[in-house]
Computed example of a mutant assay.
Amino acid sequence: MAATVETIAIIPARGGSKGVPGKNVARVGGIPLIARAVRAALSSGVIDLVVVSTDDAVIASAARTAGARVVERPAEISGDTASSESALLHALDTLAADGIAPRVTAFLQATSPFIPSDALRDAVAAVRDGRADSAFSARESYEFVWRRDADGAAAAIAHDAAHRPRRQDRDPHFVETGAFYVFTTAGFRAARHRFFGRTEIVEVPEATAIEIDDPGQLRAAQALAPLVDPPEPLAARVVVTDFDGVHTDDTAWLDAAGTEHVRVSRSDGMGVALLRRAGVPVLILSTEQNAVVRARAEKLQVEVIHGVDDKASVLRQWAADRGVDLAETAYLGNDVNDLAAMALVGWPVAVADARPDVLAAARVVLARDGGDGAVRELADRVLAAR
């Protein structure tokens, strides 16, 4: 194996985050942060092996599912004060014991949710080709930076406060994003630090330069994901949907007898029919215990489970009974009672007019509202990916 592994990526990801509990498996764009980092490394096309160093079983499971090898990190280098360098050196020593000796190492941080694979590729190329001993991701900045001096007064950093040139007349500075660092393995072992020798800046877009250290930054990343993440084929093999707010516009008419009536989309009905013809199982899973839910499911000729309080438990049992892989399942929801079920599947999907928490949890946000073609849009995208 040593002869075929020239470049590796190591992602340190310990458990026990205090600022954001479970941070490294928190979902952005419907994907755990650790899985996003693994995917970014693999998508670069220049990483031969992705390794996750962790002390946490949940992180380890998510990393393996995403395609990484896991190195168990000892407790003595898993605490709040442990450096990333110590985790990298331990992972390299573990690999060396298995005969894996990479020439180039990329250090990625899962707390950077939008790691640009093309920029990572450029950094690896710079180190591989000998143009740099180390390289790192940074964003361009024309900001005026200040500090407080010993007396608490403002003091300019790297600029003359009395001279305020126009942006176009200034040279940019570059700010580390923390997304990735790439270096020669031998140089890193000798320096025991990520910066040494000739260091090169690899510029990344400012829109991707977010690092998650607190709940506000996590929410910002979740809101940004639909705008930053590139479109991808919706490769689900099973479709599960809520009913109200998905097949309907989340309103109902009530007649004098107290019977509810809802409006549904014939286009959505055709989408379900196309899924059935293609052999894609479809389930309607609804909190509401209502005859209209069952009547619509019977009309569409799909399974229905309604009157459900705990959608996640029911979905997990339904999948186990039918041998369904939830990682290959799409769940289409609109409201907060869908969140637990969405967290179980590989493809959490939200209608366009879903609640903010649902939009933040979704891997895919559709263009159509509930009851107005959202189910058809989902069906079309699932079928297009087959």
Rank of each mutant, 00 (worst) to 15 (best):
V375M: 01
L234C: 10
F107Y: 14
A125I: 15
A235M: 12
A87R: 05
Q168A: 13
L95E: 04
G216T: 15
E140W: 11
L33D: 07
V365P: 02
R103T: 15
F144P: 10
V264R: 00
A319F: 07
I201E: 03
S112N: 11
A297K: 02
E328A: 14
Q168M: 11
A110C: 03
G197Q: 02
D98Q: 12
A257R: 13
V202H: 03
R237T: 15
T54C: 00
S286M: 05
A257P: 08
V5Y: 12
P32V: 06
G45D: 12
D169G: 10
L88R: 11
A154D: 12
D169P: 06
I305K: 11
M1G: 12
E298N: 14
G323W: 10
I77M: 00
R386V: 12
L285W: 00
G16D: 05
A106T: 14
N24V: 04
V365S: 02
G245R: 08
Y331W: 04
R128C: 11
T7Y: 04
V50D: 02
I47Q: 01
G19K: 09
L285Y: 01
V239Q: 06
V246E: 02
V246N: 01
Y331P: 03
S137H: 04
Q317S: 13
V127N: 06
P32C: 06
G99D: 00
D160H: 00
F114Y: 03
F107D: 07
E76Q: 14
R219M: 07
S134L: 12
I305S: 05
A207L: 10
L378T: 02
F183H: 11
E206L: 08
A35V: 03
A350T: 03
V302Q: 04
H193R: 14
R277F: 10
V50R: 03
S78V: 04
